[in-house]
Simulated scan of single mutants.
Amino acid sequence: MGATIKDVAKLAGVSIKTVSNVLNGYPYLTEATKSKVEKAMAELDYRPNIAARNLRRGRTGVIALALPNLSSPYFAEIAQLVVGEAGARDLTVLVDATDGDLEREKLVADGFRSQLLDGMILQPWSVSAQSLRERGDRSPLVLLGERRVMNADSVAIDSRAAAYAAVEHLLTMGRRRIVAIGSKVRGRGGRRPQEPGRRHKGYEEALAAFDVPFDPDLLSHPEGDHTPEAVARAVDDLFRTTTDVDAFFAFNDRVALGVMRALLNRGVRIPDDIAVIGIDDIEAARLNSPSLSTVAPDKAGIARTALEMLADRIAGSDRPARQVVADFTLIERESTKPR
């Protein structure tokens, strides 16, 4: 049987309350007292029962993270960062993939198994802002992405500004026939993540700023989950309509990498013939040859901010909801280097 808090107190020559104060970070303790307790814990290899401590506080020490999918490298990286930030706060994360399904997102937002959780972080795709505003569960909720709700904390990059920066980068290099390739902006009744619509808007605004006419023939929408095969089919379909193309702006890096593979298979030189840029800065973007230019969201900042806001709510804060816009950085790599 492991050492108990009583064993630590006896070895350190202090009260059980003093050991508890050390464990809970009580500020008004002398360094000598803290040192004695910490030395005793080390000698006894004492491991505090975090679960019991959380239950005494009326908490479970568990939060949920619900993302549209985990096959996406971007979401996988966000999940890893959230787990790391949570671990630094002695929190365990239950990770769920909703597949952007409306009913599954509603279950999460409405507090499914909320009695087991201290709070949750959700990236919604399908559930409406109204449903999120009217959810019955009052457990702490932080939203990722641009489905913003005035009564819920949220954090995301500005997808419109990120897209504008990517397309502006291509335009300043003299590219004028720029394909926008990514998720189709769906109407009511289908999945409606906010980001594709905002990225399309940023694309159009950048073209207008450089007096480049918008051409609907330069829009491409891979079907399904953006597999390389789906992206290749979309590129093939596009080139059956027009070959007057000198750049691709992809709504995410996964699509951009698929575009690059399809272009290389056609004998296209990147970036000499056609430049390519994406958004997300996933690991594969750096490792690919040629390496992929991209707009890099501050993913670590997004994870850290989400955990800070959630921890604040779990602690009982009733401050007004915050909508935080995370930073991003444009990273030029080989796929757009000047000719």
Rank of each mutant, 00 (worst) to 15 (best):
N151L: 09
I157V: 11
A163R: 01
A166Q: 01
K184C: 09
E146G: 14
R192D: 03
E146S: 14
T172Y: 15
K184S: 10
V185N: 03
T172C: 15
G190Y: 13
I178R: 00
M173S: 12
V185K: 07
D158F: 08
R160D: 09
L170Y: 06
V179T: 07
D153K: 05
G190S: 15
R188M: 15
D153V: 06
A180E: 01
R175T: 02
L170G: 02
R148C: 08
R177F: 11
G145E: 03
A166E: 01
V167K: 00
R175L: 07
V167G: 04
Y164K: 03
V155G: 12
A152M: 14
G145F: 00
I181F: 05
S183V: 03
R176A: 14
R191C: 13
R148D: 01
A163M: 07
A165F: 10
S154A: 10
R191Y: 09
M173F: 15
V167F: 00
V149Y: 00
A161N: 06
L144N: 01
S183N: 10
R191H: 15
V185I: 15
S159V: 04
M173W: 15
A163E: 00
G190I: 04
A163Q: 00
G182Y: 02
R175S: 07
R148F: 07
A165S: 08
R175W: 03
I178Q: 03
K184R: 15
R186D: 14
A162E: 09
I181W: 06
R192S: 11
V155Q: 04
A162L: 07
G190H: 12
M150S: 14
R160S: 04
Y164C: 05
H169D: 11
G187K: 06
R177A: 15
R176Q: 15
A161S: 13
R176I: 13
A165M: 11
R176P: 02
A161E: 08
R186K: 12
E146M: 12
R177G: 09
L143I: 06
G190D: 08
V179G: 03
R175A: 06
A161T: 08
G189K: 08
V179A: 12
T172S: 13
R191I: 13
I181P: 01
D158S: 14
N151E: 11
R148G: 04
V155S: 13
E146D: 12
